[in-house]
Design a protein around this nucleic acid. Structure first.
Length: 115
DNA sequence: CGTGTGACACGTA
DNA sequence: TTACGTGCCACAC
């Protein structure tokens, strides 16, 4: 448990759940990703929006760029940083009309934790 | 206690 | 392919 994933402030009951979400996020291998819904489904509790909430609050301490939308679109406002990570990790990307990487190729990059 | 909002997902057009 | 409506759930007002 790294210090940086400690809640900034008055976190309450969400802390336990947040811990599980962050555990999963930390377990995502280099070059692969999970969607918010994937994590919620794997945990068997909460939902995509709850996972998104956890990531919004405490995601800074983990590989946040490996947790994205189910359609492979990138985190709004952090596309530049995310693309840089994907490029160095070799994450499978889909190209847009200009031949530039725009979103993650979920067919190849999606990862599921071992049961 | 109702209403609005959000780092979402999905069906439909 | 994108856009919109709806379901979902926690939280701020």
């Amino acid at each position: 448990m790294s210090p940086s994933r400690r809640p900034p402030g008055g976190a309450r009951q969400l802390t336990d759940y947040a811990g599980r979400v962050l555990d999963v996020a930390e377990a995502i291998p280099r070059g692969l990703v999970m969607s918010y819904g994937d994590i919620a489904e794997y945990l068997g509790e909460g939902g995509p929006r709850q996972v998104g909430r956890v990531m919004a609050l405490w995601g800074g301490g983990v590989a946040w760029w490996r947790v994205i939308h189910a359609d492979g679109s990138l985190l709004a406002g952090h596309e530049r940083a995310a693309l840089a990570r994907y490029r160095e990790e070799g994450t499978p990307m889909r190209l847009d009309g200009d031949g530039k990487p725009s979103r993650v190729d979920m067919r190849r990059a999606r990862w599921t934790p071992a049961p």
